[in-house]
């Protein structure tokens, strides 16, 4: 291993790590929005939309992210829709993550004691107000463990977005191995950067989980 090489590659990897993080987090935020919408549709058993959501969830869960990305990057242009690499990566993560987040939120909604919505409705709150002010805050707290597991899962999944030519960590590592044959240095930096991204998220998530749970239930 040559330390100077590590130094030389560092800026390239740092830029790639930033891109990975940015695409990953944007994808996750979109996934949460998609998941929330789907979970609410399922929770209220909205006719028609509910079937649509079920179909989406099955499709999303039963196809690999690589296949979804292939479709977005190589398939859509055939239909006249051309998306940039980054957009493909974000849409792909949102498509995949949406169903996982939906599942997490839905199980959270189901875990909230029925008496909570009953007493909110009895006070005159509409179903929407009941959801927003009473059920959802508790559901999110209950869903936190699944939520943070999904976040880490999705960040890891970003490692496949290099197939749509996005210069993320994986892409840069493959590139350097292919051109310079400095496999050891490239792999060391690849692992190091993924750890740098994921460890704080893992640790922070654990803390956040406890905090949110405590705020909602005191235990």
């Amino acid at each position: 291993m040559e330390p100077e090489l590590l130094g030389e590659y560092l800026p390239v990897f740092a830029r790639a790590a930033w891109l990975t993080l940015w695409v990953g987090l944007t994808g996750i935020v979109c996934a949460v929005v998609v998941g929330l919408a789907c979970a609410v549709v399922q929770h209220f058993r909205v006719p028609f939309a509910r079937q649509l959501v079920s179909a989406y969830i099955e499709l999303s869960r039963n196809t690999p992210l690589v296949v979804q990305l292939f479709f977005l990057y190589f398939g859509l242009p055939k239909l006249g829709i051309v998306l940039s690499s980054a957009t493909c990566a974000i849409v792909g993560l949102a498509f995949l993550g949406g169903s996982y987040m939906a599942e997490a939120i839905r199980s959270g909604l189901e875990a909230v004691d029925d008496g909570q919505s009953q007493s909110a409705l009895a006070l005159g709150l509409s179903r929407g107000l009941t959801l927003r002010h009473v059920v959802l805050p508790q559901a999110v707290a209950l869903a936190m463990p699944a939520f943070t597991a999904n976040i880490i899962f999705l960040i890891k999944e970003t490692s496949v977005v290099s197939i749509v030519a996005l210069p993320d960590l994986m892409y840069v590592a493959k590139d350097l191995i292919g051109t310079d044959y400095n496999t050891r240095e490239a792999l060391t930096l690849l692992v190091a950067f993924y750890l740098v991204i994921l460890l704080p998220i893992s640790l922070g998530a654990g803390k956040l989980e406890k905090k949110v749970r405590y705020a909602a239930f005191g235990s």
Partner: peptide
């Protein structure tokens, strides 16, 4: 019966 105050 169970008061059902909002815990949050």
């Amino acid at each position: 019966q169970k008061y059902d105050l909002f815990p949050h």
